[in-house]
Design a protein around this nucleic acid. Sequence first.
DNA 1: AGCACGATTAACT
DNA 2: GTTAATCGTGCTC
Length: 215
Amino acid sequence: MERPARQSKRPRMGRRLQREFFARPTLEVAQDLLGKRLVRVEEEGRLVTGLITETEAYITGEDLACHAKAGRTRRNQALWGPPGVAYVYFTYGMHWLLNFVTEKDGFPAAVLIRAVWPERGIDLMAQRRGKVGERRLTDGPAKLCQAFAIDGRLDGRDLCQPDSPLYLEWRPRIQRRLIQRGPRIGINSVPEPWKSIPWRFWIDFAPDLDRGEME
DNA sequence: AGCACGATTAACT
DNA sequence: GTTAATCGTGCTC
């Protein structure tokens, strides 16, 4: 039996999620993203990382909360792109929000990343977020973009490329029984049923992810 | 050219 | 619970 020896030189590194992970039904991707590791590669190879704890699905222009409802524009064109691409947009005159494009090329859908649990690079996050408690660094969709230095320069970037400065690292799937589900946040002027449809997913305790609370 | 609004946040009462 | 901040975007005139 040939078992490949772990390479001692390289730090233990999980697999980077590839396009086929994103090229699936958006509601499945939104749940499977919980517990995965968001990795931001900064200057001199410094890493900022966190585990995803909250997501929301936005699926085609029929979903009146999804930006695809406006049709294809310069701002939202990444939504129509291939899966595994970042859709990063500016809102409220001051905030950036991060999505990952899903489904097949040309099908406008994405998953919004609403929160992560901070792991590495907490000093860099704190520099950009100011004096707040550690768990407050990345517990909102605009907060995590600020902490991870994510802005419009990453819009349309392919996360599956080996040299991408932002990517997702594989981690074991979260048990479905640990996933909570409810209506999406911040879409109060959107008509029903889209306003109440339970396309938001979250998990409560990120630290447990690394202690066997997994399938 | 003008306008209303927003997948939010922080600071308030 | 409420509200101001702040400006790109998409729409109407």
